[in-house]
Design a protein around this nucleic acid. Structure first.
Length: 273
DNA sequence: CTTTTTCCCTGGACGC
DNA sequence: TGCGTCCAGGGAAAAA
């Protein structure tokens, strides 16, 4: 479930349930998902530490601990939820952070096992966050700044929006959605966007992410939500997944094509180059 | 530098 | 039913 609105929804949901709690035990199923450390070391570093804060940076879930930082990236199919130790687990749970006192687990579930877990000590640079771009809902970016950032980018604007070092948190759904809102052709070379297109795109990015967040994000497949917390935004996509259906602005059939190995949806009539 | 390609995985949908 | 194929909210790493 993971673009900015979905990750933010997860963060808001788990935050009140785990902040202030102490991690007493950690178990991971798949060594590959623990980046840079052996599962054993990872578990040892985390054990005994109290959770201070839960935030988000781009699509990373940032869990601040007493002496370091735990990062979790959900990638394509990851989920994070809290459940009682007594409750039966769901299939595909990959990591468990047992919390003291209330006998609960913070559970990382991930069908495709593409998600990642990272730990950084107080002295370490949290490298995955170092090159992260603008936070769309927290930073205001001017059209000029945006255009300047695009100056060296000759490739199509849509794949550029997926680059996390420019804007953090935009993924494949909201990239198509934002370009539709801004009426910009996804194939238009990024460095040819006019100042007013840059302005329109900034507005569209914020609009689309805000709107999705207000609905709790989107859920594409229900196997993603064992807690029954489905995002309500999926039904409100303007173009994503709507190939062959009609554009809500002009009635033209929505088209789909592949860009940088990902599906792009757009209206060939009202999205200009 | 940027850009493109390859790869990592599981499972659901669809065609035969 | 059972295959085979394609597709999926991502991004690191290698290659160009």
């Amino acid at each position: 479930m993971p673009e900015l609105p979905e990750v933010e929804t997860v963060v808001r949901e788990i935050r009140p349930r785990i902040v202030g709690q102490r991690i007493v035990r950690v178990r991971t199923e798949i060594a590959r998902q623990v980046v840079g450390l052996t599962p054993r070391t990872f578990a040892r570093r985390l054990s005994g530490q109290c959770i201070r804060a839960v935030t988000r940076r781009g699509k990373y879930i940032v869990i601040a601990l007493e002496h370091g930082t735990l990062l979790i990236h959900l990638r394509m199919s990851g989920q994070l939820y809290v459940r009682s130790v007594k409750t039966a687990g769901h299939a595909h749970e990959r990591a468990w952070f047992e919390l003291e006192g209330e006998r609960t687990y913070l559970v990382f579930r991930d069908v495709r096992t593409l998600g990642t877990l990272h730990y950084f000590g107080e002295q370490d640079e949290v490298t995955p966050l170092a090159r992260m771009g603008w936070e769309p809902l927290e930073q205001s970016v001017t059209a000029k700044e945006f255009r300047t950032a695009l100056a060296a980018r000759a490739s199509a604007i849509k794949p550029v929006l997926l680059d996390q070092s420019l804007w953090a948190g935009i993924g494949n759904i909201y990239a198509s959605e934002a370009l539709w809102e801004a009426r910009i052709d996804p194939r238009k070379p990024a460095n040819t966007l006019t100042l007013s297109q840059c302005a329109a795109l900034i507005k569209a990015i914020v609009l689309v992410l805000d709107r999705a967040l207000a609905k709790g994000g989107s859920t594409l497949k229900d196997f993603m939500s064992p807690d029954g917390k489905r995002g309500e935004y999926s039904g409100e996509f303007r173009v994503y997944g709507r190939e062959g259906e009609l554009c809500l602005r002009c009635g033209t059939k929505i088209k789909r094509f592949v860009q940088a190995q990902r599906s792009t949806y757009y209206c060939g009539r009202c999205q200009k180059s």
